[in-house]
C-alpha cells in the first residue's frame, strides 16, 4: 500500500507546513461511471455516512430512469468499462430493476446497498439476472461490525440482523455479495479484525466470504461522530509520484447525480466539486484540494469493488 506514497515529499513538509497548491489530476480515461441513483435518500442514517444520507436528505434527489439511460448511452459511446449504482439506498428506487437491466446491457454493474430491502422476491430476481446477464452483476452489502452491538452502534438499531437477512437471501439465490466494512472500529482494520469478520460471515453459511474494507472519510455525518480532518491533512503538489496517479480512482472515474457530475462518489455534498451538468463537462483535470483526497491517497482507498 505504501508504494504510492512519496515519503520524501511528506517528510519535507511535515514541519513547518508550507503553503503549496493542491495537486492537479488528469482524467486518463473514463473507466468507471458512478450513478447516484437514489440521490441522498436512504432507509438508514448511519453515523459514519460521509454524505449524511437518510430518509429526509433531499440534497440530491433520485435520478429518473431516463437520465440513467442517457448516462449509460453516453458511457457506451465513450468506452466506459464499468458501472456502479449507489445512493442512498439504490433499492428504494421504484424503477431499480429497469435501471439494473439497462446498465447490464452495456457493461458490468456493481450495486452498493445495505441489503435490507432485498426481500425474497428481489433476491430471486437478482439471482436470475446474475446467472443470465451478459455482463457481471455484483452486489456490495455494507456491514460495520461482527456483532449486533458493534454494527448497530453505527448503522442503527436491529440493522445487523436485517442486513444479514439480505445477505442470506442473496446467497440462497446464488449471489455471493461483497461485504463492505468501513473500519470505524479500529480493530477491524487490523488482520485479526479482518479474520474475525471472515469467520463470522463463514459461520453464517457463506462458504466463500468476499470482503472489502474501507477507511472512513471524516466528512458528512462521520465528521460529527469522530471529528474532522486536521489542517495538515491535505494534499499538495509533489505528494503524487509521477506515473502512479492511477492509484487514485478519480484518475479514471466520475459520478453522475440528479444535480450533475462530480469527480468521485465521496464529494457530492461539496458544492465546489460540481463539474457541470453533463459528462462532457467533466472530462477535464481536477484539483485534489479536499481533505478527503488525503484519505484516498494516504490510505490507498478505492471505492471500486
Amino acid at each position: 500500500m505504501a508504494q504510492h506514497l512519496n515519503f520524501e515529499a511528506l517528510l519535507e513538509r511535515a514541519a513547518p507546513p508550507k503553503e503549496l497548491p493542491a495537486p492537479t489530476l488528469a482524467l486518463s480515461h473514463l473507466d468507471t461511471l458512478w450513478l447516484q441513483v437514489t440521490g441522498t435518500l436512504c432507509n438508514l442514517a448511519c453515523l459514519h455516512c460521509f454524505i449524511s444520507c437518510g430518509p429526509k436528505n433531499h440534497n440530491h434527489e433520485m435520478m429518473t430512469l431516463e437520465s440513467v439511460q442517457d448516462a449509460l448511452n453516453w458511457a457506451r459511446d465513450h468506452g466506459v468499462k464499468e458501472f456502479y449504482f449507489t445512493g442512498g439506498e439504490p433499492f428504494m428506487h421504484p424503477q431499480i430493476k429497469e435501471m439494473i437491466l439497462a446498465a447490464l446491457e452495456h457493461g458490468p454493474l456493481n450495486i452498493l446497498t445495505n441489503g435490507i430491502l432485498i426481500d425474497e422476491s428481489m433476491a430471486a430476481w437478482l439471482g436470475e439476472v446474475f446467472r443470465t446477464s451478459r455482463y457481471n452483476l455484483d452486489l456490495r452489502v455494507s456491514l460495520d461490525g461482527t456483532t449486533p452491538e458493534e454494527n448497530d452502534a453505527i448503522r442503527g438499531r436491529k440493522t445487523y440482523e436485517k442486513i444479514f437477512g439480505g445477505i442470506d437471501r442473496l446467497w440462497a439465490h446464488g449471489v455471493n455479495p461483497v461485504i463492505t466494512v468501513t473500519t470505524c472500529h479500529a480493530d477491524l482494520a487490523a488482520e485479526d479484525g479482518r479474520r474475525r469478520f471472515y469467520e463470522v460471515v463463514r459461520a453464517r453459511g457463506l462458504s466463500q466470504p468476499r470482503l472489502k474494507f474501507l477507511s472512513p472519510f471524516k466528512i458528512g455525518r462521520e465528521e460529527h461522530r469522530a471529528g474532522g480532518y486536521e489542517a495538515h491533512e491535505r494534499l499538495v503538489e509533489g505528494d503524487l509520484i509521477p506515473g502512479q496517479e492511477d492509484a487514485l480512482q478519480c484518475s479514471s472515474c466520475r459520478m453522475v447525480t440528479a444535480k450533475g457530475v462530480y469527480p468521485c462518489p465521496i464529494l457530492i455534498e461539496v458544492d465546489e466539486a460540481l463539474m457541470g451538468a453533463s459528462l462532457d463537462d467533466a472530462l477535464v483535470d481536477i484539483k485534489l484540494d479536499h481533505p478527503a483526497c488525503y484519505t484516498c491517497h494516504v490510505e490507498g482507498v478505492t471505492c471500486r469493488t
Partner: peptide
Amino acid sequence: ESTTPDGF
C-alpha cells in the same frame, strides 16, 4: 470476459 464490455 464478464467485466469487459463491447463499448470499452
